[in-house]
């Protein structure tokens, strides 16, 4: 499978990354290398292997339905670049 510059641009946009032309060139090559490697992996016969979604042999980790303390609003907002009293403030978005 080969990856085009347009694919890389599209993927970058989905991740909200702004790439310079030079970066696009380098990353296209890197991504192509990764895809080539995956093609190689694909040649392995995995008919008998279940897809791995997790690497740790752990399952069923729950917490009980109990309320614990939340952050103070002032602490929750501490890292916000923009805030207004109790709220996080963001540029207007209307879907």
């Amino acid at each position: 499978m080969s990856i085009s510059r347009e694919d890389v641009k599209y993927t970058a946009n989905l991740a909200r990354l702004e790439l310079k032309d030079k970066e696009l060139d380098i990353l296209s090559k890197h991504l192509q290398d990764i895809l080539d490697f995956i093609d190689k992996l694909k040649s392995v016969d995995i008919k008998e292997v279940a897809p791995t979604s997790h690497v740790l042999p752990i399952k069923n980790v729950y917490r009980e339905d109990e309320v614990s303390r939340s952050l103070k609003t002032s602490d929750a907002l501490k890292n916000a670049p923009s805030k207004d009293e109790r709220f996080f403030k963001v540029p207007k978005v209307i879907e």
Partner: peptide, 23 residues
């Protein structure tokens, strides 16, 4: 439920903004 799906913050309706949040 009393608490959220992945953390212990309360699910109580009508609380003032950003009082039921955690890391």
């Amino acid at each position: 439920t009393k608490s959220k799906i992945f953390c212990g913050c309360s699910t109580e309706f009508g609380a003032s903004a950003n009082t039921q949040v955690c890391p």
